[in-house]
Structures are given as C-alpha cells and as structure tokens.
Amino acid sequence: MTVLEVRDLYKGFGGVQAVAGISFGVAEGELLAMIGPNGAGKSTCFNMLNGQLRPDGGSVHLNGRDITGLPPRDVSRLGVGRTFQITATFGSMTVAENVQTTLIAHHRGLRGLWRPAAALHRDAAMALLERVGMAEQADRACGVLAYGDLKRVELAVALANDPMLLLMDEPTAGMAPGERVELMALTAEITRERNIAVLFTEHDMDVVFTHADRVIVLNRGKLIAEGTPEDVRANRRVRELYLGESAEAG
C-alpha cells in the first residue's frame, strides 16, 4: 500500500526552478533512497514533504490524505517522523527526556501544568532507547553526546510519534563509515518490523545500494531515473551524471 504519494511537485526560487515536476510514491515497509548531485533539488523536495516549504504546484498525499502545504507540526501529527541532516535535539534535556517530550506531544499532553513530566511515558521512552541502543545513556544530557549517538537519539525521537512515514535527510552525514552501516542496518530493521515507509536522501552510495529497496535519482529538479539499486546502477543517464561517462557523443 502506498503511504506517501507525491504528484507533480514544483518549487522555484526567484528564477531558479529547484524542483520541476517530480512524482513518486513510497510503500509500506519500503526504503526509498533519493539521490542526486548537489543542487539537484533533494533538500527542497524533502522540505516540501514535511511542510517546511510550501510547493508552488503539485500535491503530497499521506495515506490518501492531501497534506500539501500543511505546516510541519500538523504533518508530524498525521504520522510523519523526521530526522535532519544536522541533528536537531533538545540540548537542555536528557536523552530520555527528548524522547519523553515527543511522546507527550504525540499523546497531546503538553498542556499539563502540574504533574512533573519526568515520570510521563518513561517506560515507553526507555523501550525506544533500548531499541536504538541508547538505553545506557538515557540520563545523559543530549548536549554532550557523540555525534553518532545523537543520530540514534534522533531516530528514537522520530519513531516516538509512531509514524507511518519516516523522512530522513542524509541520515549518515558526518558519521564514521562503520557507524553509517550500523545505523542504516538498524533503521532498515526497525522499519521492516514496524512496516514503516522510509524516504531518505544520501550521498554515500554504499549505504544506498546496501539498504535501499528502490532508488530515485534527481537532477536539476527532475526525476531522471527510478528503480531497484541494480537498475539504477546500470542506468546510462545515472552513470553519466555520477561518473561523467558519456555513452554517446553529444
């Protein structure tokens, strides 16, 4: 079943058409990688999916529901988890509190004025942290964690609102090669067991070809190829783009 359905998305900045008519879908339990050179329109496209940017044209549907142009907080409430290229967590809270805050938000409990938040959803938060391998560091401040660990926390936070879709912008950027494989393997495992649809952008081709079920390739705001990692690897236009190979002159 298709979770995310993107139809004919457009976005321009001044004279530049950053995204010029892109359509694709992501199915349940599927890991879809979005790749392309710098400036291909990946980030712009991504930011339109979760509402940070409003598209000029086209539509975004989540489980058949039109979410085009909704602000990020509404998109989140409809079941979309998000991780960022540069991790965004709450530095003045512990690892567990980061997840707890998300859980409280998910259960619409943020208006509570009296009962201490520290006791709320603690077990659920610990279970999530256990799943991403961060349970031991649950009571450390987020501000002092190693970057790789921060990425794990972000994954736990993104999972906390029980999403049907996970949007991950360069999930392994800034990590050591060993950590990258580990984190993506973990992500793949979790998304399969929860049957979540995942869309991620990535520069590391090893990560893409190892973990993605399907790949879409963007260039200059347009979709130029789509298919299994093998198909895409063999695609002439993709090879031209990445390797500068020109199969035909002109």
Binding site: S76, F84, F90, T102, A105, V157, A158
Partner: peptide
C-alpha cells in the same frame, strides 16, 4: 530547537 519542536508537532 525550533526545527525539532516543529517536527514533533
């Protein structure tokens, strides 16, 4: 983090 707060609703 405004970004994160927005993203969790």
């Amino acid at each position: 983090s405004r970004l994160r707060a927005d993203a969790i609703g």
